[in-house]
Nucleic acid binder design. Structure first.
Lengths: 193, 193
DNA sequence: TGCCAACCGGAACATCGCTCCGTATGGTGA
DNA sequence: TCACCATACGGAGCGATGTTCCGGTTGGCA
């Protein structure tokens, strides 16, 4: 689990090439067909065998993580920046959540894959590892500022947001962003009235 | 789609018997294994062939609908009653939503199956046909009373609630009921502050 | 009792995830 | 330059599941 020792022999050239080909094929198919596209299709599009796909990415989740790693990273990095720049912690939280929602709804089926349902555990874990601390910081800052009720955990909030984003594509009558806004509004201390 | 003409010849006795057996088997398996239990298992448990299951219930959704029809009906009927009895329309809405959430979270995988994702379209349709008007009435009453902002459709609200219930079983850290409460709180006119 | 439409059962086909192993090849040391 | 072998490849194959199809069975009526 720790970093591989730097003495690790570099991978063979064909291996590196194939890994990239799979990554590219997966990225393309994810856009057009969602993250549930059959592994066979990815292998075919990449011009490799299925064994090769599974060797480089033991589970579908590993592949999804690899494809979206950059975007998740930048979403994670945006958290502290927003907190520093925004007019209030709650505003920062709202902006960050909007970023997160935007990321989820544009990736067909990603939100669905995020529910822990064993199988995509690695995906779930990665998202949580990377984004939960960011969300927790924003939430804590807002709570400290008295702008939100501190009785909801960041975990619960993130899962709720993720769930609200399920099926947000493919259904014009369903606007996940609006519902997420409502959820955030509900975080206001002691509600309204 | 209209009622079958009453001139329809009654089904054969064995057909009726088998339909009931499938229904019973499905109900039992849904409780223990969720609504995604393999059709083969249902057929085996009911002591019939798979062809029989598919003949009586062309899609899994039809079977799910048949199994839960009574509970959906009583949930639908509770709406007007709550509106008549509760102290305020918003309170009635909250109680009814709680009823709905309770129904969803206790049926493993039902909430997941509810997202329109073609395949369980019949399920989605049935729930919407039956419950959406009820929810819409409650929502409209609350809006008329000035207790909620009228800019969210009942459809959106129901889908949001359904989504929030996904995975609510199987994860002790995730309390769908609390998040749904937050969502409802967010409906308060012009927010808090 | 005999007939036939309705109904049954489960084999068969299709899809998909994942594994396994015989084969091919990149890179290295001689 | 060449031979060797660890590394990597490819895709057949297995198990699970959804769904269809058709030959055989049977309930209900004349």
């Amino acid at each position: 689990m720790v970093d591989a020792p730097e003495t690790a022999r570099p991978k063979r050239a064909d291996a590196r090439r194939n890994e990239q080909a799979v990554l590219d094929a997966a990225a393309a198919l994810f856009v057009s067909g969602g993250v549930d596209v059959p592994v066979r299709d990815i292998a075919t599009k990449a011009g490799v065998g299925m064994g090769t796909v599974y060797r480089h990415f033991p589970t579908r989740a590993d592949l999804v993580v690899a494809v979206y790693r950059h975007q998740v990273e930048s979403c994670a990095e945006a958290g502290p920046a927003l907190l520093a720049d925004a007019s209030s912690p709650k505003a920062a939280l709202a902006e960050w959540v909007d970023l997160f929602v935007g990321f989820l709804v544009t990736k067909h089926g990603l939100a669905s894959a995020l529910r822990s349902d064993e199988g995509s555990a690695a995906l779930h874990t990665y998202f949580l590892d990377r984004l939960l601390p960011v969300c927790a910081d924003l939430l804590a800052a807002a709570a400290n500022a008295g702008e939100v009720d501190p009785d909801v955990s960041a975990y619960e909030l993130m899962r709720g947001i993720g769930n609200l984003c399920i099926g947000a594509d493919t259904d014009p009558r369903y606007d996940a962003r609006r519902l997420v806004r409502l959820l955030l509004a509900g975080l206001a201390p002691t509600g309204a009235s």
